[in-house]
Design a protein around this nucleic acid. Structure first.
Lengths: 256, 256
DNA sequence: CGCGATTTGTGCACGTCTTCACAAGCGCCT
DNA sequence: AGGCGCTTGTGAAGACGTGCACAAATCGCG
């Protein structure tokens, strides 16, 4: 393998860190590995095998090895992976060495919860502004931050370089908020509003819709129910529909 | 194509509705189509072309047609899809014709927001119980429901057949709650706690982790930043600025 | 010093998902 | 009635992701 360096302590700002163009599916799993690694570190483990880490992260061990191999050879054959080193590497690749500034727009039911969610501050992010369009909400203090009017977004962005915008507004307002975020230079958006956002090229949007998750579960419920209504392993060909047996045992978590 | 019937009015309970074993990727998109269709219906449209619907749902039109073809031929060539009929079909396939009962465990920051989220009640689900292990939270009323102690889960499940459990507890409590949910017969779990749940076969778990979503965005931010810092083509390494252009234009939403 | 136990990294085959491109079908207009 | 334009449904090809199985590499021990 090629020589990999530890970019964590890199003093150079725009260095050339050979960011290795990871597959999307791998990127989506890295945070999960990272969480599992932190748990292991807290428990005092210094090294971990791919088998152990994959179990903690809930994935196949071969998949985990392939994922990690994409960011370089940081394991030792016969031993496993150095927990601390791997944490450092993944955090670097994910860009978590710098605490990115997050602006949260929409301090309603959900926004309120997000503002108080410690998973944000605890995992490499800091909320720098709470914004809302409703004047009656402006001025309220949540978790040490004062809610400001959404029109102040340019001022916020000027004071502190906002990397990520979170939209927790009603669907009707989401597109307008997205436009405003893009206008002040935000290039990554996490959208909780149930609607499609249209953004210029180069801007990343991820969507989280709680109702959709429930509906997907509902489908599987429906499917399981209609299957159990069928005869077990009858011999007759008639009513047996899905030749298969195990059905789709997607006990795997997540998808997104 | 084979004859498809409208199962919406099916009187038989455990009928054999030819549930067509949809690809997971398709299932994950159906709720999005459904939302777009409701919007179109509200706007007065009676029919919609695959082009129009796919634009409203933010996907490729060919993908949409293939997705819909999996649940039967409900379009008319030269015309498009009947909005009302398609809504009925998708809701049937997703099992939304019956309002499924949801039990929410963990009424902290996030649980509070979920309890008040209208996307639940509005989209085919009804929260039938709010549960928490903290005695100081028991008794509180949220959105018309009284918070009960988690030990009452069996009583809740006995009174009303709970189809889906939502876990919004801290990570440390999540596995225990999942076990309790499984024990009372819940076979679908939506997990907001940042941890892997182990459940018996046949139980579906979907995970939503807000921190993970942010970290994925962070990766793309990091990548975009390191790319714009690179020289365009063959220039000197140092000061060259934004020679780069399109970069990774993953403007697509979600991944689920 | 050499050997065996262990674990990583990866080539390969397989299945799933996406996308293009086009024939088949439908309604409308003349 | 016939033809024309529009839209669906789908075959085929390619991209992508997954998992097996094994060679290469490392450590510890005799």
């Amino acid at each position: 393998m090629s020589q990999h360096r530890h970019p964590g302590a890199s003093g150079r700002a725009g260095a050339v860190p050979t960011l290795p163009d990871l597959p999307e599916a791998t990127v989506a799993r890295l945070p999960e590995y990272l969480r599992a690694l932190h748990n292991l570190a807290d428990a005092g483990h210094e090294t971990v095998s791919s088998e152990g880490l994959s179990a903690a992260a809930g994935v196949n061990s071969a998949k985990l090895r392939k994922d990690l191999s994409h960011l370089g050879s940081y394991g030792t054959r016969g031993v496993g992976y150095d927990v601390a080193l791997l944490i450092e590497q993944i955090e670097y690749v994910l860009g978590l060495t710098q605490r990115r500034a997050v602006a949260l727009v929409g301090v309603g039911n959900l926004g309120h919860a997000l503002a108080g969610y410690d998973g944000f501050a605890g995992r490499g992010f800091r909320i720098v502004a709470l914004l809302d369009a409703d004047p009656s909400r402006v001025g309220e203090e949540i978790n040490g931050l004062i809610v400001r009017h959404v029109d102040e977004l340019p001022a916020v962005a000027a004071a502190e370089s906002v990397a990520i915008g979170v939209i927790a507004t009603p669907a009707a307002a989401a597109q307008s908020v997205a436009d405003q975020l893009v206008a002040v230079g935000v290039t990554s958006i996490l959208n909780f509003a149930p609607c499609v956002l249209s953004v210029p090229e180069g801007v990343d949007v991820r969507k989280v819709d709680l109702a959709i998750e429930l509906q997907i579960l509902s489908f599987h419920e429906h499917r399981k129910a209609s299957l159990t209504a069928l005869p077990a392993t009858g011999g007759s060909a008639l009513t047996a529909l899905p030749g298969g047996l195990a059905t789709t045992d997607t006990q795997e978590a997540i998808g997104t």
